[in-house]
Design a protein around this nucleic acid. Structure first.
Lengths: 225, 225
DNA sequence: ACCTGAACACCGTTCAAGT
DNA sequence: ACCTGAACACCGTTCAAGT
């Protein structure tokens, strides 16, 4: 019987926290949030589900650690930016592109509010807020506003990608179905939404995202000087 | 045997979509996202799990419908505001307070990207963006930015409330544990976060939220005029 | 110390069978 | 048409038993 042909190769070394996290990232990238399962993970690692619990406390910690690996990697790539504004735009776009590449990160970030991944981003933003010479008593709320906006867009993108994957559609098809829904809305109750329904199909999420960052930067500039 | 004493009363009428949604909201308010279960719901409604599927397609639709009920109710309360800015602030704070009262709504909103609940909010915001005389080709990105920011804060608040409930702590205790984590961060790697760690304990989420809205409004004012 | 894998207590969802 | 409830295919997590 060739039963062993489709079996994964036996593990060539000891299990480790990092090895588990790397395998988790691979599963998440491949199958989205639902792709990470202790059973799939233990199969990938050629072990039993119980073995993973020797290295990791629970699924929440696993997701958070996977998320942190991605975020830390992104923040490590240096940005040759001159002004604090440029740097903030670059950090924000880095987040956008990272979550575009790993949609599950958007959801994972929200899941652990005070966790290390979010602190990393908050720190980066905060340093630039300082560099913008925002008064000390407004630095907290300013950095928080930027972070919230970035997380808001991230969450929506992550959700979009997730339903697209769940229904195995591409981005264009999802937008098409939303556009159809919007066009059939009641004219009197939804005048604005209907008027912009045409822009839905050919808008650029990344451009819109940056426009929001620029609004915040303009607001900071005019409020804090 | 008094076995029937703790049994729920028999259903006094037919099942209906609205009755199911109302029961779902009650479960969600009481037990958070994890509180809504087809088994708990069918027990509450004195029926079997299968009966619910006659009226609702799946759990996603149920969550979305529950969310829409809350959002629609909030948007129905009239706002006696003079300027578009005032109205935008009022709508935003309405969202904030609603999600403060029903944290699960924050997560549910993100779950269904193009859904009716989000369209309702988008419409409200968009109408005020128009009233602000934002040029037509910038209305989409402006309304989107406001919506993303609101959703970002909502998502974080929802997550905070959820972990607080899961660990059965109050808000103050959660902030305390986060504050302790922040204070133990490496001084060199996290100078900003450490410097604002003191503000964490006594800050007001609602005030910070409004500060972000005001930054965006200032940005809109200075960009579009 | 580290791993195994069966077992437990849950899920959402389906569906033949009832009324 | 509407409801019932057992059954299915999953989960995350635990834990006695192995090495």
């Amino acid at each position: 019987m060739g039963k062993k042909i489709h079996t994964l190769p036996a593990r060539d070394g000891a299990l480790s926290r990092q090895r588990i996290i790397d395998a988790s990232i691979a599963l998440l990238d491949q199958g989205g949030e639902g792709g990470l399962t202790f059973r799939a993970l233990s199969e990938q690692l050629a072990t039993g589900p119980g073995a993973i619990y020797w290295h990791i406390a629970n699924k929440g910690e696993l997701l958070s650690a996977a998320c942190d690996t991605i975020i830390a990697h992104m923040l490590n790539t240096p940005l040759p930016c001159v002004t604090p504004q440029d740097t903030l735009r670059a950090v924000a776009l880095g987040m956008f592109d990272t979550i575009d590449a790993h949609p599950w990160v958007g959801a994972a970030l929200t899941r652990t509010p005070g966790g290390l991944p979010m602190v990393r981003i908050f720190e980066r933003i905060g340093q630039q807020v300082r560099a913008l010479r925002v008064p000390e008593d407004k630095q907290w709320e300013t950095a928080s506003a930027l972070l919230s906006y970035i997380l808001g867009v991230s969450g929506q993108n992550a959700a979009n990608a997730q339903i697209a994957q769940a229904r195995s559609l591409d981005r264009f098809e999802v937008l098409g179905s939303v556009s159809a829904t919007w066009s059939s809305l009641d004219e009197d109750a939804f005048p604005f939404t209907r008027s912009v329904a045409g822009q839905l199909q050919d808008h650029d999420d990344r451009v819109d995202f940056l426009a929001g960052i620029n609004l915040l930067l303009k607001g900071i500039e005019n409020t804090c000087q």
